[in-house]
């Protein structure tokens, strides 16, 4: 499966083994690029005790599939994968995984960054953070995420 939205944790060893295998009817990959995002224990100088991830079921899967397919079209990839967790998470938990395989490293690393930049600005997920003293706050958008995405529109 190429995109997944799930409450459960994911196992990097299994995903890596899956990516390492040749896609049906193709050569074995020469490169695997993986990005994993984790829950931080600090944000904007306050401690984070837990985080809750909400999403828009249906639209989230549609958006992630579109981002995956755009990467597959733009770069010569063997496989691409996006996994995003929802529900309650704690510091150091895995939140998101994006990965791609290709014959040479550049396509895989660029496609991974591209998928992550689009995920952060277009996929309908929302984080709320709980601090140690029980205060819950919605995380606000970062301008740097929009800047990161715009680089893919300037270059071909």
């Amino acid at each position: 499966m190429t995109i997944r939205v799930q409450e459960d944790d994911f196992d990097l060893t299994r995903i890596y083994a899956e990516l390492r295998e040749a896609p049906t009817g193709q050569h074995t990959p020469g490169a695997i690029s993986l990005f994993v995002g984790l829950v931080r224990d600090m944000n904007n100088n306050h401690s984070v005790a837990a985080m809750t991830l909400e999403h828009y079921p249906g639209m989230t899967e549609t958006k992630l599939t579109a981002i995956h397919d755009a990467a597959m079209t733009r770069w010569p990839l063997g496989k691409a994968i996006i996994i995003h967790r929802v529900g309650k998470l704690y510091p150091n938990d895995q939140i998101v995984l994006v990965g791609a395989t290709s014959s040479h490293r550049q396509a895989a690393t660029e496609a991974t960054a591209f998928m992550m930049d689009y995920l952060k600005t277009e996929a309908p997920f929302w984080k709320s953070e709980q601090t140690a003293d029980g205060v819950t706050e919605w995380v606000s958008t970062r301008e740097s995420d929009m800047t990161a995405r715009s680089r893919w529109q300037e270059t071909k």
Partner: peptide, 9 residues
């Protein structure tokens, strides 16, 4: 649907 700018990832 109405929602704030997204903050996943």
């Amino acid at each position: 649907a109405f929602f704030p700018p997204v903050t996943g990832g």
